[in-house]
Computed example of a mutant assay.
Amino acid sequence: MDVHVLSNQELERFKRELLDEIRSMLSQSTDESTAKQWLRSAEVRKMLGISPGTLQNLRVNGTLPYRKIGGSMFYARQDIERMMKGGCANG
């Protein structure tokens, strides 16, 4: 397994590029009034183009709030959009 150490600058650049792509995808999504208010994990991963592990990290570190109902996790669309705009989704 190759290991490549990234500098802080490279990580920051990757973060900016990733957020720009996600913002672009969100802006192309359907009109908010017709869009679902709550999304399941799979829908969020598909919408953001992220892995299950990345979504878990967003939950664990408090970046993206969620509600667990039964065995399913749900995410508010407005929290996802707020996170992508760079604001804290927790308020």
Results as ranks from 00 to 15, higher is better:
residue 2 D to A: 10
residue 2 D to V: 12
residue 3 V to N: 03
residue 4 H to K: 14
residue 4 H to T: 07
residue 5 V to M: 04
residue 5 V to L: 10
residue 5 V to Y: 08
residue 6 L to F: 14
residue 6 L to T: 09
residue 6 L to A: 10
residue 8 N to S: 08
residue 8 N to D: 11
residue 9 Q to W: 08
residue 10 E to I: 06
residue 10 E to H: 15
residue 11 L to Q: 10
residue 11 L to D: 08
residue 12 E to K: 10
residue 14 F to N: 11
residue 15 K to H: 14
residue 16 R to V: 01
residue 16 R to K: 08
residue 17 E to N: 08
residue 21 E to W: 13
residue 22 I to W: 12
residue 25 M to W: 09
residue 26 L to M: 03
residue 26 L to W: 03
residue 27 S to L: 10
residue 28 Q to V: 07
residue 28 Q to P: 03
residue 30 T to I: 08
residue 30 T to R: 14
residue 30 T to M: 14
residue 31 D to M: 05
residue 32 E to T: 12
residue 32 E to S: 13
residue 33 S to W: 05
residue 33 S to M: 09
residue 34 T to I: 08
residue 34 T to C: 10
residue 35 A to T: 00
residue 35 A to N: 01
residue 37 Q to A: 06
residue 38 W to C: 01
residue 38 W to Q: 07
residue 38 W to R: 07
residue 38 W to E: 01
residue 39 L to D: 10
residue 39 L to K: 04
residue 40 R to M: 12
residue 42 A to Q: 15
residue 42 A to C: 08
residue 42 A to D: 09
residue 43 E to I: 02
residue 46 K to S: 12
residue 46 K to I: 05
residue 46 K to P: 04
residue 47 M to D: 07
residue 49 G to T: 10
residue 50 I to C: 05
residue 50 I to F: 02
residue 51 S to G: 08
residue 52 P to L: 00
residue 53 G to P: 04
residue 53 G to A: 09
residue 54 T to E: 15
residue 55 L to H: 11
residue 55 L to D: 08
residue 56 Q to I: 06
residue 57 N to H: 05
residue 58 L to A: 00
residue 58 L to T: 02
residue 58 L to H: 05
residue 58 L to I: 01
residue 60 V to D: 06
residue 60 V to T: 14
residue 62 G to T: 00
residue 62 G to Q: 02
residue 62 G to D: 03
residue 62 G to N: 01
residue 62 G to Y: 00
residue 63 T to Q: 15
residue 63 T to G: 09
residue 63 T to H: 14
residue 64 L to G: 02
residue 66 Y to V: 03
residue 67 R to A: 13
residue 68 K to I: 01
residue 69 I to F: 14
residue 69 I to S: 13
residue 69 I to W: 14
residue 70 G to E: 02
residue 71 G to N: 09
residue 71 G to I: 03
residue 72 S to V: 07
residue 72 S to G: 02
residue 73 M to P: 00
residue 73 M to Y: 09
residue 74 F to N: 02
residue 75 Y to M: 04
residue 76 A to H: 03
residue 76 A to P: 03
residue 78 Q to G: 03
residue 79 D to I: 04
residue 79 D to G: 00
residue 79 D to K: 00
residue 80 I to D: 05
residue 81 E to H: 05
residue 81 E to G: 05
residue 83 M to E: 10
residue 84 M to L: 11
residue 85 K to H: 10
residue 85 K to Q: 14
residue 86 G to H: 02
residue 87 G to R: 09
residue 88 C to I: 13
